[in-house]
């Protein structure tokens, strides 16, 4: 017991799904607390000092997005959203409100655990010391010297491409919406020009991906945004 068990709160109104999620997470060695509504979920989140929240969007006493907004006023723990809906707008809303990732029902245990692990790892990173060099695949990014190299060869990125890459790498494994990318890379005045993101993402992929049409690192979450994976 050198490290305490990660504490996860599962807020879901369907008992069978809640049970399956709890089962899966416990098998991964997490401590799980359950809640079946937003009110209960907030109490749990406030008292259990959780490391993460797994949240269903459609709850009997309200919208999961409200929970996220509430939670984000006092905590920055990762939130993974479970969405039964096909509508991309709900996911975007949840992500914009502060969720870090989402899973579309039905999902398997393997998918769930992969996401949970990634978020827990990221949280550990954030709490660790800031790195000045970041490596993934064949790419090496030196933040301090603003140099990007691919297999040792310097890669020429424009200022925006560089900012985009930095923002992506510092939020690896999380889903970033177009709006978030625009706001953080271009600034608030470009909030509606989502095609800018697509065009620059295309440029960036051409420079860092082996096959830009089947990317390995900058993944598209269609209708929602992007996810950077190492």
């Amino acid at each position: 017991m050198s490290e305490p068990l990660p504490v996860i709160i599962v807020i879901e109104d369907e008992p069978t799904i809640r049970r399956f999620v709890k089962l899966s997470l416990e098998s991964e060695g997490c401590q799980v607390f359950e809640a079946d509504c937003i009110r209960r979920g907030l109490i749990e989140a406030g008292t259990r000092k959780p490391d993460m929240v797994v949240l269903d969007l459609g709850l009997p006493d309200g919208n999961g997005v409200d929970f996220i907004r509430d939670l984000r006023t006092w905590s920055d723990i990762p939130v993974i959203v479970l969405s039964a809906r096909t509508s991309e707008a709900d996911k975007v809303e949840a992500l914009d409100a502060g969720a870090d990732d989402y899973l579309v029902k039905p999902f398997g245990a393997a998918e769930l655990l992969a996401r949970v692990r990634a978020q827990l790892r990221r949280r550990a990173h954030v709490h660790g010391a800031a790195q000045s060099v970041f490596e993934f695949g064949k790419i090496r990014v030196d933040f301090g010297r603003r140099i990007v190299e691919r297999e040792g060869m310097p890669l020429h990125l424009t200022p925006i491409e560089f900012r985009l890459l930095v923002y992506l790498t510092s939020n690896a494994d999380s889903v970033l919406t177009h709006r978030q990318l625009l706001k953080n890379v271009w600034g608030p005045s470009h909030a509606e020009d989502s095609h800018y993101v697509r065009v620059y993402m295309g440029h960036l992929r051409k420079k860092i991906e082996d096959d830009p049409s089947q990317p390995k690192h900058i993944l598209t979450e269609t209708g929602v945004g992007y996810r950077f994976v190492i």
């Binding site: 369907e14 069978t16 799904i17 049970r19 399956f20 999620v21 089962l23 899966s24 098998s27 459609g58 039964a84 809906r85 029902k105 039905p106 999902f107 398997g108 245990a109 393997a110």
Partner: peptide, 19 residues
Amino acid sequence: HDLRTPLSALVGLADSMLL
């Protein structure tokens, strides 16, 4: 919603059986 919820549970429960 009504059709997918039991299906989601089914997928998840089948998975958790392995766990």
